[in-house]
Design a protein around this nucleic acid. Sequence first.
DNA 1: AAAACGGGGAT
DNA 2: ATCCCAGTTTT
Length: 277
Amino acid sequence: MRAEGVSPWGTLVFEVMSQQTPIPRVQPIWERWMRDWPGPADLAAAPTADVLIAWDRLGYPSRALRLQQCAAAVAARPGGRVPADMDELMALPGIGPYTASAVSCFAYHRRVAVLDTNVRRVLARTLDGREFAPSSSPGRRERSRAESLLPDDGEACADWNVALMELGALVCDQRAPRCEACPLASECAWLAAGRPAAEVRPRGQAWAGTDRQARGRVMASLRAAHVEGRPLTRADALSAATLPGADPAQASRAVDGLVADGLAVADPVTRDLGLPG
DNA sequence: AAAACGGGGAT
DNA sequence: ATCCCAGTTTT
């Protein structure tokens, strides 16, 4: 979390959860998570099934798996402490450039730019006069420019990064920017240019009918079966994975994929499915 | 460079 | 009923 009194590990957990999920949905899960598993060693020692159930529907259950792997990696470090350096952070499972920079800055007040999609959009609009950042991930140019804007003091950097992230999330909205409420309106190149629309709109992912939806249905059944203390038969798993009007091969692909990803385990004899121990 | 990977909320 | 959102890993 980006607040006082939160441990570096708590910050890391919060930022991992926030990777694809809005803060309001993350907050209650994070509170309970940190109560149950305050430190990396606690999470590393927990049954993976409990971790996946606590993760609930935050999205992409493989991220919960990696977070537990990350906990083990951190617990194995000297003092069991979260590293402060970008390179050491990025070497941890599930930690990429975004989370590494967020932890480095928010937990350790390192002078690092935190470039999430909201910040990239704010900079693209105010400085480049473009509606969106170039669609790919931030490159050298973007990062060095963002760094050149940072305050000198590390603590001020944390405030700066949080401010830009919030501005992008709440005011400089992707679809409906509230320029009338924007503190940067008078200096914004995009607003000055009349808010020109980008040639290519970023295309969202399809959801209905995808393998991801089928996998999500199976995960929901696995969680329910686990809390009821029963296994899930393969037939029931396939049934859960069968979407209306879908390719018949999709269900088995979804179930087998979950097993391959370590999100489900299959009994070698009965083929019953369960969450990993 | 591109695809795979959930699930909810706004419109 | 549609559209939209995000960072990490794998291919």
